[in-house]
Design a protein around this nucleic acid. Structure first.
Length: 942
RNA sequence: GUCGCGGUGGCGGAAUGGUAGACGCUAUGGACUCAAAAUCCAUUGAUGGCAACAUCGUGAGAGUUCAAGUCUCUCCCGCGACACCA
């Protein structure tokens, strides 16, 4: 027998498949289509990563299964080749990016081909080909013509050391990614795409697609929809008003001051009215100057300046409130101004504390659950803190009676809360001398008093005391119903951990942790809405003050300009007379000129600006002197429509006009299954959904969503569990694994390594496992005989079922494990029947396509195994004829027995009781209960 | 801080509420060999016991249940994303 020589086998079949065009997708097929997509790689100089192998192999398995199921499968690949690393490499080595890209894609192509992935290579695309980016430019022009691309002054990240503009992704924690130096924001005119116009649809349409839940959540959070209202506040002695956006109009009565973003237009407008203008102006400048690092380093420390003599009127209660500027309010979000409600917003609370502003409580919390027929009571909860030991007085009632609590009790007669609290402290703990430091708002607490069997609503007041000295009286507990409790002084930590009663916990977090209440509740101090539920009050209060209900999004418009060379030129001509003029379609693509230096200019402009021959053009409209736009597009541009380019490549090799492709889009779109990295959830997937929706709106594509299903793979980490990185020297090169173990082994290993959607650490040691498995499968063909045993036949049938299901659910690790279980079973039997072995090979084929094909042909099959249909399984083959029944006694497994599967329940129970083990454990007692779980176990309770 | 994911042997990880540790790696012993590698066989959660067997055991604590890795609550730790979003 020949040994298993992976090198020979793999190269041989890869050549054969390519020659026979085995994986070519057919544009004219009558079959049902299935479009499998993986994120096309950025061809970096480092070559293919183990992470690519993981994602691509997984989708390859799915593609192969779909082909076997009779679908016309499109599984394409290409290169997302514009980008910074290539450009930076070009700057350093003076090699044209085009040349670098060519070299890198050659490496990637060779590596991908060596893995036996069933890509349709005839559709390979490259975002840096002019024939490709003419379309990227074409789509940009459509966006421009529809008013979705516009130019605006926007802050750019500027590295103070390198003196160049940086893309957002080059700024890490406020520092320049290359030199580590500080960055700041500089204003520059930038091209923007109005993705916010699609925010609502991008959010809502998530309901209609099959994305992993965490991907949907990621997108939703990024879009950041929030519902609220715009409310206007009149400025005293001025014709101007301050507009704010708020999600909490119910707290309007508690708005005790206002804050404008330092760069808010009103600041400049109100200049004459602001008495301390110098101070305010200084703060505005300071804020602008602040680098990103400073801003983040400052953390949550609030700063700001009061605009003296400027007052606004709270429209709810006509109160005169001061106005501030502070950088915790952002100009870009909402209206750039807020009404501050320090009692019910953590940030406003901190600011108010620092500036000594009034904190007015307007929402009373509700704790516990409301029940029918509640009895109303008033009570107090008192916290006593010993300033010397910093400990808090608590009562431990024991588990049954609520655990650790503070001091609580009802109000008697006409007692005030303070009187009641002092009385309770004395009665329950004996401490005589305490000083009241603060009192809380009312808390509406609902609970069920088990001892008395009544539901209660209590209006509780929290009181915070300081212990003055240790003088105590004896404590007698005549109230027997309460039982005994232990009086203990506990640390803040212990108290926070042990106290679980929601009312007590609320008062603790208010006084000790200094938290304000941000939840909903019952309104107070709010005019005619007192006593109303805050959620209900929202609408009414908006209406009362003439507010406008409004939905806003966190999502911002997409900054689409890069001042770089290696990207698609933005196809716009800037004319002094005509403004921004689109390059006519017939002149596309606007090709990147070949230049010598790729370094960005000192002014932060693209290196293209220095190529005068390229820049100076005639205006297409007025034929006058004009200049080209020198900004280029970001990385995300080419990948926002690439899934369409594969279809176009197959039909007419990306030639104009777009109408050629309509039928192709109708047949192939949407992508049926798209797998990629979690890191692309918010940017790439969102951007491409936006472009697709736009293309749908202008009638290019048939549906409004590009991807019907999106899944995500976990990262592959280096052996220690850290990220693989060149600097750490822990990168695994797939080439060396393919060389020593073979592509089939690598594929199996990466599928077996762990749950597909989770991060897993690489382990070179473990690769031998899948290799040994393949060796066993290889040798097994020697054992083919006329008959096989029934057991291994059943195993194979079962495996077909399990593996079919596992592939669909991306449980590749358990699928491989199942293949191993089958091979172990086949290995044990002395003779294997050919049909059983062949069936096994057919389910192995998507995972290890080369060995499966080789053995398949050795067995005498003339046609490729990859043209075989997906096997069906015979469920009757693995129906158990005998059952193993477990016997549990008081929940513990004490014995088991086997019995024919048709045995009636009564017989099984009898048998269970008659077992010697059962007798031993019951030891004379009578079973109280016998539970039978069908086909599994008998549970006996004694 | 918020959101998401996770915590199970020496390691990667299995497990519709029903025999925890499938499958793989490692390690130990044995077979083969002059020897080694490879391969094959056996053992491999902890503790006690000659053994049969027993007890404990899925980050911690509580709860629901005849039965909890799995469900509920509270908390701790690790990873990832976002981060003053009104």
């Amino acid at each position: 027998m020949r040994p298993y020589d992976h090198k020979k086998i793999e190269i041989k079949w890869q050549k054969r498949w390519e020659k026979e065009k085995l994986h070519k997708a057919d544009d004219k097929s009558k079959k049902k289509k299935y479009y499998c997509l993986v994120e096309f790689p950025y061809p970096s100089g480092d070559g293919l990563h183990t992470g690519h192998v993981r994602s691509y192999t997984a989708m390859d398995i799915i593609a192969r299964k779909r082909r076997a199921e009779g679908y016309n499968v499109l599984y394409p690949i290409g290169w997302d080749a514009f980008g910074l690393p290539t450009e930076n490499y070009a700057i350093k080595t003076k090699t044209p990016p085009k040349v670098v890209t060519k070299k890198n894609t050659n490496t990637f192509r060779r590596q991908l081909k060596s893995l036996g992935l069933s890509f349709d290579w005839s559709r390979e695309i490259n975002t840096t080909d002019p024939s490709y980016y003419k379309w990227t430019q074409w789509i940009f022009l459509q966006l421009f013509k529809h008013g979705l691309a516009y130019k605006k002054k926007m802050p750019v990240n500027w590295c103070l050391t390198c003196k160049i503009g940086l893309a957002n992704e080059e700024v890490v924690d406020g520092a320049c990614e290359r030199c580590g130096g500080a960055t700041e924001k500089r204003e520059k005119e930038q091209w923007m795409l109005a993705i916010t116009k699609y925010a609502d649809r991008l959010d809502k349409d998530l309901e209609a697609v099959d994305y992993l839940e965490r991907i949907k959540i990621g997108q939703k959070n990024w879009i950041g929809k929030s519902e609220g209202a715009i409310i206007k506040f009149q400025i005293l002695n001025s014709k101007f008003q301050i507009e704010v956006f708020t999600t909490r109009p119910d707290t309007l009565f508690g708005a005790t001051y206002m804050v404008l973003a330092p760069d808010h237009e009103l600041v400049e407008i109100l200049k004459g009215q602001i008495k301390n203008w110098d101070e305010a102006a200084r703060y505005v400048i300071q804020t602008k100057k602040k680098t990103e690092i400073e801003r983040t380093a400052e953390g949550k420390e609030k700063t700001g300046v009061r605009l003296e003599e400027v007052f606004a009127v709270n429209p709810a209660n006509q109160e005169k409130i001061p106005v501030f500027i502070a950088d915790y309010v952002l100009k870009e979000y909402g209206t750039g101004a807020i009404m501050a409600v320090p009692a019910h917003d953590e940030r406003d609370y901190k600011f108010a504390k620092k500036f000594g502003l009034p904190i007015k409580i307007v929402v009373e919390p509700v704790t516990g659950e409301r029940r029918e027929g509640e009895e109303k009571r008033r009570s107090i909860v008192a916290l006593v803190r010993d300033p010397k030991t910093k400990k808090i007085l608590s009562l431990d009632w024991g588990k049954a009676l609520g655990g650790r609590l503070f001091i609580g009790g009802g109000l008697e007669n006409r007692e005030s809360p303070e009187e009641a609290a002092r009385r309770e402290i004395l009665e329950e703990t004996g401490y005589k001398n305490v000083r009241l430091t603060s009192v809380s708002e009312k808390i509406h607490h609902h609970y069920f008093a088990h001892a008395k069997g009544v539901a209660r609503e209590i209006e509780a007041t929290g009181l915070y005391f300081e212990l003055l000295d240790g003088e105590r009286t004896d404590v007698r507990h005549e109230d027997s119903e309460r039982g005994k409790f232990k009086i203990e002084w506990v640390s803040e930590e212990e108290a926070g951990r042990d106290v679980s009663d929601p009312l007590h916990l609320y008062i603790f977090s208010k006084f000790v942790l200094g938290k304000c209440y941000e939840g909903s509740g019952i309104l107070t101090d709010s005019g005619k809405w007192n006593g109303l539920d805050s959620e209900t009050a929202k609408k009414e209060i908006i209406e009362f003050v003439g507010g406008i209900p409004k939905v806003i999004y966190k999502l911002r418009d997409w900054v689409f300009s890069r001042q770089r060379y290696w990207g698609e030129p933005i196809p716009i001509i800037i004319c002094g007379k005509c403004g921004y003029v689109p390059v006519p379609e017939k002149d596309l693509p606007v090709k990147l000129p070949e230049i010598k230096t790729y370094t960005p200019t000192d002014t932060g402009e693209s290196p293209l600006s220095k190529v005068k021959k390229w820049v100076n053009v005639k205006c297409p409209k007025c034929k006058g002197k004009a200049e080209r736009e020198t900004d280029t597009m970001p990385n995300w541009a080419g990948s926002s429509w690439y899934y369409l380019s594969y279809i176009m490549k197959g039909i007419s090799n990306l030639k104009f006009p777009i109408s050629k492709y309509k039928k192709g889009f109708e047949y192939w779109m949407p992508v049926d299954w798209y797998n990629g990295g979690m890191e692309h959830t918010t940017l790439h997937v969102l951007y491409s959904r936006f472009w697709h929706k736009f293309l749908f709106d202008i009638g290019i594509v048939p549906g409004s969503e590009p991807y019907a299903k999106r899944t995500s793979h976990g990262m592959i980490l280096a052996e220690g569990g850290e990220k693989m990185s060149k600097s750490k020297g822990n990168v695994v090169n797939p080439d060396s694994i393919v060389n020593t173990f073979g592509a089939d082994t690598l594929r199996l290993y990466e599928m077996f390594i762990g749950p597909f959607d989770q991060a897993v650490a690489w382990s070179t040691e473990s690769i031998v496992g899948p290799r040994r498995f393949l060796e066993r499968v290889w040798k097994m063909k020697e054992k083919i005989g006329k008959t096989g045993d029934a057991d291994s036949t059943a195993q194979v049938e079962k495996a077909v079922k399990k593996i079919s299901e596992d592939i669909e659910a991306m449980r590749f690790n358990t699928a491989v494990s199942e293949l191993m279980i089958v091979s172990n079973a086949l290995d044990k039997s002395s003779s294997i029947s050919k049909p059983v072995y062949e069936k096994f090979l057919r389910i192995l084929a998507p995972f290890a396509p080369h060995v499966a094909e080789e053995i398949w042909s050795i067995l005498g099959n003339k046609k490729s195994i990859h043209n075989e249909s997906w096997p069906k399984y015979d469920a009757t083959a693995f129906i158990e004829t005998t059952l193993t029944i477990m016997v549990q006694i008081n929940g513990k497994v004490r014995g088991k027995f086997t019995i024919p599967s048709e045995t009636p329940e009564e017989k099984i129970k009898e048998k269970a009781l008659s077992l010697p083990e059962t007798a031993k454990w019951i030891s004379g007692g009578k079973p109280k209960r016998i539970i039978y779980v069908k086909g599994r176990l008998v549970s006996i309770v004694v």
